[in-house]
Design a binder for these strands. Structure first.
Length: 93
DNA sequence: TGTTTGACAGATT
DNA sequence: AAATCTGCCAAAC
C-alpha cells in the first residue's frame, strides 16, 4: 500500500462530523479504496490515535469488542446513543 | 517464500 | 437469527 491511501483514509475519518457515524467500508469507499475495509481498521489501530475513530462502526452498526466501551462512551458524549451496544436502525449510516 | 492474523463486509447455509 | 465461508490487503512470523 502507499502513503497516499493511508493519508486519504485518515482524512476521511477526520472529516466525519461530530454526532455522526460511518462504517469501515464506507470510509474505505470514500477514500477511493472500495473493498479495503480491513485496511481502515488496521490504520485506525496503528495510526488512529489522534482521529475520531469512535465515529467508525461496523457495517451493521455494532462496534469492535475491545473498544466497544470507549466507543459507546465517546459517542454518548456527542449525542449518539447506542442501544445494547449497537446503533439503532434509523441512525445507521 | 508460505502462513497466519486482524478496529471488515457480503453472501450463503 | 447466528454461524460459516470467501474476498480483501498489509504486516508479522
Amino acid at each position: 500500500m502507499d502513503e497516499e491511501s493511508h493519508e486519504r483514509i485518515r482524512a476521511v475519518v477526520a472529516s466525519i462530523p461530530p454526532g455522526h457515524t460511518s462504517t469501515y467500508g464506507q470510509v474505505a469507499a470514500d477514500a477511493g479504496l472500495p473493498g479495503r475495509a480491513r485496511l481502515v481498521g488496521k490504520i485506525l489501530s496503528e495510526d488512529g490515535h489522534d482521529l475520531p475513530w469512535h465515529r467508525v462502526l461496523r457495517a451493521n452498526g455494532t462496534a469492535a469488542p475491545h473498544i466497544a466501551q470507549e466507543q459507546a462512551a465517546r459517542l454518548r458524549e456527542e449525542g449518539v446513543f447506542l442501544v445494547d451496544g449497537r446503533l439503532p436502525r434509523g441512525q445507521r449510516p
